[in-house]
Measured scan of single mutants.
Amino acid sequence: AIERGSKVKILRKESYWYGDVGTVASIDKSGIIYPVIVRFNKVNYNGFSGSAGGLNTNNFAEHELEVV
Rank of each mutant, 00 (worst) to 15 (best):
S15D: 12
R39Q: 13
S49P: 13
K29E: 11
S6F: 09
Y34S: 08
N59R: 09
G53L: 08
F60S: 00
H63M: 06
Y34V: 04
V24D: 00
S26Q: 10
V8D: 02
D20Q: 06
S49W: 12
R4V: 14
E66W: 06
F48I: 14
S6N: 08
A52H: 08
G31W: 09
F60Q: 00
N59S: 09
G50E: 15
G47P: 12
A1P: 11
G53Q: 11
A25L: 14
L65W: 02
K13T: 12
G47W: 06
N44V: 11
A61M: 07
I2D: 00
E62M: 12
N58L: 08
A52T: 11
R12I: 11
A25H: 07
E14R: 04
E62S: 08
G5S: 03
I33C: 14
K29T: 13
Y45N: 15
I10V: 11
T57M: 12
K13D: 04
A61L: 06
A52P: 11
G5C: 14
V43L: 07
S30E: 09
N59A: 13
R12S: 05
I27S: 01
V36K: 00
R4W: 07
V67W: 06
V24N: 01
L11E: 02
S26T: 08
Y16E: 08
V8L: 00
T23G: 01
G31V: 13
L65A: 00
I32Q: 12
A52V: 12
G19V: 13
G5D: 04
N46Q: 09
G53I: 10
G50Y: 04
R4A: 13
N44A: 07
L55S: 14
G47M: 03
V38S: 00
V8M: 00
K7V: 11
D20L: 13
N58Y: 10
I32E: 12
G22M: 05
Y45E: 15
N41M: 09
N56V: 12
Y16F: 14
V43M: 08
A52C: 15
V36C: 06
A61T: 03
S15L: 02
V21C: 11
I32G: 11
Y45A: 15
S15C: 14
I2K: 01
L65R: 01
V38E: 01
G19A: 06
K13I: 13
S51N: 10
N56W: 09
K13A: 09
E66D: 04
T57A: 08
L11N: 04
K29S: 12
N59P: 10
F60I: 03
N44T: 04
E3W: 05
E66N: 03
G22E: 02
E64R: 01
R4C: 15
Y34Q: 08
N58Q: 15
F60P: 01
I10Q: 02
F48E: 15
D28S: 09
Y18D: 00
F60Y: 09
G50D: 14
V43C: 15
I32R: 07
P35C: 14
N46G: 11
K42C: 15
A25Q: 14
K29V: 13
S26K: 10
V43A: 07
G54H: 07
N56A: 08
G53V: 10
N46H: 13
A52R: 03
G53M: 05
K13M: 07
N46A: 04
A61C: 12
S51Y: 04
E3P: 06
D20F: 12
K42F: 07
Y34I: 02
G47V: 03
S15T: 02
S15R: 00
E66F: 07
V38A: 00
S6T: 13
L65P: 01
D28Y: 04
A25N: 05
E14M: 06
F48C: 15
